[in-house]
Every structure is written in C-alpha cells, then in structure tokens.
Design a protein around this nucleic acid. Structure first.
Lengths: 195, 195
DNA sequence: CAATCTATAGACCGGTCGGTCTAGAACGCA
DNA sequence: TGCGTTCTAGACCGACCGGTCTATAGATTG
C-alpha cells in the first residue's frame, strides 16, 4: 500500500502552501517561500508531490475545501436555523481575517482569479469546491423550507467572497459585516412576508 | 508642462497590463508579456513609468476604476430606477466575461487578493476604488428613496465580485446571473413591503 | 545484519524575472 | 541648422524561479 502514515512534513508543506495562497496567491507564492516556512529542503517537496508546485496547490485546494465545508457543517449541526448557522460561519471567517492583519482571506478565491481556463486541473478542483459549498447550503436552506434555496446559496457565497475582498482592501471587517447583515435582513424580511 | 500629449505607446502599455491583471493577476503577468502584447521594447516602460511594474499597475488600476465607474454612471443616467441601472451594469460585465472565454473578470479583484497590507500604494488605490464605487451606488439608491442604501451598496458590490468569481471557475455566467437576480428579487420584495 | 524502501537533504541547472544602461531616432524650437 | 528634449530600442545584468539530480539517513523486513 503506497503512502499512508505521513504525520508531519507533507502536512506542513500543504499548510504552508495554503497560507501562501491566502496571502499572496499562487503566482505570488514561491516554492522556496513554502519550503522555508515548512522548514523542509527541496527534495522533500518533489518526493511527496511529483507534480511539483501544481500538485501541492491541488492538495492545498482539496484540504481547504474540506476545512471550509467542515466548518459549515459544524455550524449547521449546531444551529437549527440554517440562516443563523451560515451567518455564524461568515462571522468566523471575518474574525480570521482581522486576526491575521487582513491577510488570510479565502485560499480558493485568489487562485480562482489567477488561473485561466487553460489550467484545467486547478479549475476543475475549484469548480467542484464552490459547487459543493453551494450544494450544502442549498440543501440546508431547502430542508428548512426556505424558498429559492439555490439562488440564495449562490448569493450567499458571492456575498462571502465579495465581502471578504472588500474587507481585505479596506483593512476593516465592516464591509463584510455590513454586506452579511444587509443580506440577512433582506432574507428575514422576505421570510416574514411568506409566512 | 511635463507629459501631456501621449497618444499611443503609454496607453497601449496600460491596456496590456489591465488585460493581464484581469486574466492572470499581478504576479502572473510578467513585464515581458505586457511588452510583447503592447509591441514595445523594455526602455519605453521605464521611460513612461520610472517606478516600473508597480507604477504601471497603479496606472492600470486608476484607469480601470475610471472605466468601471464611468459605465456605472452611464447606466445610472440612462435608467431612472437605480436598481435597474445597476442590474444592467452587472449584466454588461457578465457579457464581457463570457465573450472572453471567462478570462476577463474585474482587474481590481485579482490584485486585491494578491497584495498584502505591506503593498501600501496598491492597497490605498484599491481601497479608494471600491469606496468610490460604493459611494456612487449609495448616492443613487438613497436619492431614489431606497432605505439602507449604504448596506445595499456593499452587498451589491460583493455580489458582483463574488458572482464574477463563481462564474469564472464554473465557465458559465449562470452563478453571477442567479446571484444578481436573487438579490434583485429580494430588494424589490422589501421595497414593495415598505411602500 | 544485509536488502530494500521511504524520507530527508541540498547542490545544481537552465530559464525567466524585474530592472538598468547606453545608443539613436523624432520632434520642438531658436 | 543646431541643440535639447522626448521617446524608442534592445543588449545586458544579477537575482530568483520551478525543477532535477545524487547522496544519505531511518525504518522495515527477510
């Protein structure tokens, strides 16, 4: 059975790459940066990831989407109202951003904007990631009886990413918070009417 | 009077840089790429932009924000309902994205995610750009009597950027369209209640 | 205790990066 | 016509990029 029990180094490489993706993006993050942060020599990278930087980036994307949806699932379990759960989930991201001096946004967003359709593998992974995130939200909203669940899911993800972006350049969580609060109010208002 | 009548080369450099920013981002766009696309030799760049790549990027950001707000202003003049004007403006961006094989999104978004707080000049320019865009929308919405105009402006810009991002990786305008339509419906519903 | 496989280690390579420098063409104005 | 300025042109540079290669340490198993 090839590769199974890898405790340290490989994971450290992935984490360092994710950190780089969040802060400077794929092209802005050099292999040597990652290696230095992970405290590992060159050879290790190409041992664990024969496809080099791309392979590492793909692993980082996979891990990121698992973590992000994991957090969302956790919130959805904890709060019966999916809208409240999602709001808590966004608020946690907002906290993470401000705690890192407005550097650590969404690792998927940056790489999404840096790649072209020619980067097939990366694009496919990202498309799957966002689709999965939206599907999870749609399901939660729909099962709570919210109408237009699919539209709301896309809108919420957009608000999340677009809000993070604005918060980042403004060096303030206010834009993200304001966008989320406004959207929440709109959805609740409509819910009240429908009831 | 220093530099006034520059018809060709300088503008071509800026346009080529903007194109690169949209497709591959700041770090993903090499100086030589820009030069090749603009059909200009090295020396020209450093003659017009002594600060090199950064100077060119700043000029590109300035031009981009002028174009983007220009289009918005045009739509706001044409359509009396600011909400409709903004929707048309988003739809135009959506068209541009699909016409370029889902490569040409917002040139400001990518660079926003690639830079850190340490890139003071770029960040300041971007912060100003987004603030200006929001201000213009807030003003239009408020003067039409829409409540929570400021919150809506942040939300709309977030939907725009987040929708573009999702559309890009999905190779389809559907996410952007769906997000915009859903948001439009929510705002109109609230408007109907308030009336 | 060899043999083997996995993982660590870093010297090394060609290519490209952003940036500098010198030379000359084109144009303005006396 | 001569002179200065603006702009074009591209050779050139050191630094760094992602990636390859060989050597070896550590663990596993006969």
């Amino acid at each position: 059975m090839p590769e199974q029990h890898t405790p340290g180094t490989k994971q450290r490489l992935v984490s360092a790459m994710t950190d780089g993706l969040q802060r400077r993006g794929l092209h802005g993050t050099g292999i040597s940066d990652v290696l230095r942060e992970a405290g590992a020599p060159k050879g290790v990278l190409y041992h664990h990831f024969p496809d080099g930087k791309t392979g590492l980036a793909l692993a980082s994307i996979d891990e990121s989407i698992a973590i992000i949806t994991g957090w969302l699932d956790l919130a959805l379990e904890k709060y019966p109202d999916p809208l409240e759960a999602i709001e808590r989930w966004v608020r946690a991201a907002s906290r993470r951003l401000s705690e890192t001096d407005f550097e650590a946004g969404c690792p998927l967003a940056t790489i999404a904007l840096e790649t072209t359709a020619a980067d097939v593998e990366v694009r496919t992974a990202l498309a799957g990631a966002f689709a999965q995130l939206r599907a999870r939200m749609t399901e939660a909203l729909a099962s709570a009886g919210t109408p237009h669940a699919e539209g709301l899911a896309v809108l919420i993800v957009a608000t999340y990413e677009g809000g993070l972006l604005q918060a980042r350049v403004a060096n303030s969580v206010v834009p993200l918070q304001l966008a989320t609060d406004t959207l929440g109010a709109l959805i609740r208002a409509q819910r009240a009417v429908a009831a």
